[in-house]
Design a protein around this nucleic acid. Structure first.
Lengths: 152, 152
DNA sequence: AAGATATAGGTGTACATACATATATTTGCA
DNA sequence: TGCAAATATATGTATGTACACCTATATCTT
């Protein structure tokens, strides 16, 4: 659906306004599509993200802070997301002996298995819906990097 | 901040994957910046969006459904956002006589005043942080429209 | 006209962000 | 060394999305 149809308006202040609304809308659109996959597997996008981050170090453990620093949304409440993953037996929480303030998190066998299934479907779904050539995707990436330059 | 710094990774599946992560991150980045403005005025982004939509028809009233259809996030729980705006006396809720199922919403004088202050600051802030020329913004818009084409 | 169906809005629950604050532990410095 | 400050995590609250379900009212069909 075109942006102006989705928002039922074609009144945009300027090109920058239209483009940023489109960034917000496209992010929403993409998340909505993926949420169908997550729902089929009884997890949420954020739970998936935590598991995906843990996979990067598996079978090593990661502390909560390390996971949080790799989350896209920096204000995610990682301890609470972990609570839910522990309840589903997807991850294990252990106390650190080295630094007793830390808790160390790692994927369980069940978590690994689940993650791999979901990852495959997420990848397939993404490929299905993202209608860009490699070159266009790269242009898009570069424009977004430019957009955020000279952050104050 | 560059994408790979923000996510502390440079392992991207392909160009499409990198670009879509960048869309999600840029949306988050933009919202984070604007949230500072909203916070100063004691409202949230979604409350602002509802008021902005009402402004488009002011001084006419709008029913909840009409507002919801113009929201960027289509699953927004508009009745509850309106609850909070009513509590702050930013909007008025009245029963429709024409269709008794409907409630009609409109901005109060206080709401208009608040909206105009916040709008100005949102506009200034956006201009400050969005580092794109008109042409680049238009390219970005076109790539995002292309990205979502042939939605299944 | 009467009953089935659709529509508008409100409400309940799970989970998420945003953010303030609490607690335990470690680190750094006088 | 001992205490202040920093750090790691957890927890509480307000607000939001996602989605199921409820109620009142309107519309459609026969």
């Amino acid at each position: 659906m075109k942006l102006q149809e989705a928002l039922k308006t074609d009144r945009f202040r300027d090109e920058q306004h239209k483009a940023t609304l489109n960034v917000l809308y496209t992010a929403y659109w993409f998340k909505s599509h993926l949420s169908i996959v997550f729902k089929e597997h009884g997890i949420t996008e954020e739970q998936f993200n935590v598991m995906r981050i843990l996979k990067g170090k598996h079978p090593e453990q990661m502390c909560v802070r390390d996971i949080a620093s790799r989350m896209l949304e920096k204000n995610s409440n990682v301890p609470r997301i972990i609570d839910r993953l522990v309840a589903k037996k997807m991850v294990k929480r252990e106390n650190s002996t080295e630094d007793k303030r830390e808790t160390l998190i790692s994927l369980t066998a069940k978590g690994i298995e689940q993650l791999e299934k979901v990852s495959k479907q997420v990848e397939t779904k993404s490929n299905d819906i993202i209608n860009l050539s490699d070159e266009e995707a790269n242009q898009l990436h570069n424009l977004l990097e430019k957009l955020r330059e000279e952050e104050k």
